[in-house]
């Protein structure tokens, strides 16, 4: 039996103004197991990004329960969430989000440097090397992000997401800023990573890439309506 990495129970996120309460998430239940490759898709404004923010501990739910690796994280403080993010979650963003002034290797090292585990410089060096090799970018380790193409930047972002050996990769529209050729390369890379045991949860609106995941969920009006397979069958 596979271990549960993420378990969401009745997660709600409400944005309140003086006049109206808007339900970005209206009671989401979701379970992701070790080694899963999950995609979440849905129309604009359905709550995909909000869900990913809550999964990544970038935001807190208004209510509901969130368990990550068996620990309840729905009401932790910001410092604790930072520690969990650096050690247990890998992020891959649509805009790559590499820091311009840092070199490729320094960008990759960030999660290790923010971790409370006090990695030695030797270990950091070794992990950077390993991750760069995984994404085929060893020869670019001294470059600055603006010296790389979009596809190369996203590969560096993947390396950064992997460097702390996280329990799960949270991937937000990884091909949104890439041409189809580079998009395909990145998606191929994610499949390979999953095949080697990495758990992935990806948000995408591209059905072609959503299909590459083993489990596909469809989000509508802040709720997981059905799996994409069920949705397709219904259509």
């Amino acid at each position: 039996m596979k271990n549960t990495i993420i378990k969401l129970e009745d997660i709600k996120k409400i944005f309140s103004t003086e006049e109206v309460d808007t339900y970005a998430l209206a009671g989401v239940d979701l379970e992701i197991f070790e080694g899963d490759y999950v995609s979440i898709s849905g129309p604009s404004g359905c709550g995909k990004s909000t869900l990913l923010s809550i999964l990544g501990l970038l935001d807190e739910p208004t209510s509901g329960s969130y368990t990550l690796n068996g620990k309840c994280v729905s009401k932790i403080n910001k410092s604790e969430s930072a520690t969990i993010r650096s050690d247990e979650i890998g992020f891959i963003f649509q805009q790559f989000n590499l820091i311009d002034e840092l070199s490729v290797e320094d960008n990759i090292s960030l999660p290790l440097r923010y971790s409370d585990k006090n990695y030695s410089e030797l270990e950091i060096e070794e992990r950077i090397h390993r991750c760069l090799k995984k994404v085929g970018m060893e020869h670019r380790r001294k470059h600055k992000p603006n010296q790389l193409s979009g596809g190369q930047q996203q590969r560096i972002a993947i390396a950064r997401a992997l460097v702390a050996d996280p329990s799960i990769l949270l991937v937000d529209e990884p091909t949104g800023n890439l041409d189809s050729k580079n998009g395909d390369i990145i998606m191929e890379m994610l499949s390979t990573l999953n095949a080697s045991g990495t758990t992935i949860c990806m948000v995408t609106h591209d059905p072609r890439y959503a299909d590459m995941a083993h489990k596909q969920y469809y989000l509508l009006d802040g709720k997981i309506a059905q799996t994409t397979k069920e949705f397709k069958e219904a259509v």
Binding site: A82, T83, R85, F91, I99, P111, S115, R160
Partner: peptide
């Protein structure tokens, strides 16, 4: 940029 750093695990203290 600070948001990205925080997403990667930087605490307020960092």
């Amino acid at each position: 940029e600070l948001g990205v750093r925080m997403a990667l695990g930087a605490s307020p203290k960092h």
